[in-house]
Design a protein around this nucleic acid. Sequence first.
DNA 1: TGAAATGTTGGGGCG
DNA 2: ACGCCCCAACATTTC
Length: 491
Amino acid sequence: MQSQPIILWFRNDLRLDGNLALSAALSSQKPVIPVFIWDDKSRDCTFNGPHSIWWLSRSLRQLSDSLQNNGSSLIIRKGSPHTELSNLASETNADQIYFNERYEPSEIQTQRLVKQALEQDNIFWKSFNSNYLFNPRSIYKSNNAPYKKFSAFWKHCLMQPTENLMALPVKPKHFPSPLLWPNTIQPEELNKSLGFKGASYPKQIWVPGEVSSQKKLNKFLLTSYECYSENRDRSDITGTSMLSPHLSFGEIGPSQIFEEINQLRRNVDSWETSYENKFIGELGWREFANYMITHYPESKNKPVKSVLDHFMWDDNEHHLNAWKSGETGYPIVDAAMRQLKSTGWMNNRLRMVVASFLVKNLLIPWQKGAEWFSYLLIDANEASNILGWQWVAGCGTDSAPYFRIFNPLTQSQKTDPNGSFIKEWLPELSRLHEPWIHTPWLAPTNILRKAQITLGVDYPSPIIDYKTSRVRSLSAYKHAKLKYDLERKTN
DNA sequence: TGAAATGTTGGGGCG
DNA sequence: ACGCCCCAACATTTC
């Protein structure tokens, strides 16, 4: 009789290479049943929204195919993980379940239910940390309290002995199969079940899957890596790796990226420490976000720092909609928001610019922006999203001691000097040129006429005046800060 | 992983 | 040749 199979529960770790839970399961020499569970009740933003669902179904197809090529198979089920895993175990007579840990509050709850259900059924479970370089539950300050500031956190991480870094398991070769495969649904059915019509990607070609992730990393290392710190903020050129969705779905692990960067650095820029390296620093922010949500799970709904509790928001629906649809009248903001809507992505700098505009200039609560981002971002990750928005709003633990307001004009001129990014996403402005491309409302009438633009018709007039809104915002902050300081004094 | 106000320096025009 | 003004280009400070 064949030994009892192990169920490998795939989550946001849709890769065969460098996947700790998978390689551990396979090394047991027992039959392995890989399963992905689609939970349509889950609000997990990694698998939510049109772009993410599109990616997920493609990625599952890739994973399924590569498992097939290895003589295995991917089982896809719909339902809540704890009942599905429990059912699947009894169907297949499996006595063990392996998976990689997630750290978002809702996922912690999911894991708790799963662990409870399995323990009740007398099924052994084992979990791993394979999606982060460092286990967030093993990094603390010398006084055993969790870190609150990125720089200290990241320094500490990088000073860890290398054996504390997540190990990179070798690529698995043998995939022992069970005698009988359980029922499965097809990846494409996930689209159907959500009534998803399919998005078109006219500007940005995404290729989900493990193979493509690897290609993208190699391409980045060969081309953009060298000038990463100079070009990462540019809107008009691809200065970043664009690996974020691949990381989000776990098609590539951070350990592998870290490893390959370091290999390259040994030859190229050995004078620079890992701490100084900008790209490695971005992996660090990813670690830090996950670390923060692990240790401050309540930050999901509540600002870590209550400095904005008495902030005078101007929760204007009209303004929010203008921001969402890219019709604020500020070209750099609008171009970025339209890129987000049609591709599910924008670069980090532009995320900060549009976020600052929403929170600081329009005075709309950051949660509204976070919600839109988590719905549309193809690389949506709850931890990073919360950290990012609280950072911009200035209510995170690691926020600046002053009220930072991005100037969309300065940012436009710096990140898109000749306006080519703006023109790409706002074709109605394509006949307008620098410098007016950044500020159509300041363009002389004859220039506008030549560019065939009627403000308010072809392209909106600014929905707010930057300078006025800045002053309004600063005074709102002054007021909020005063109350905040007062409350802290009396307590 | 800002912006704006304020301060400093230095070159050119000009009396 | 000099002081004076203007102003751009940085540098520093403040929020």
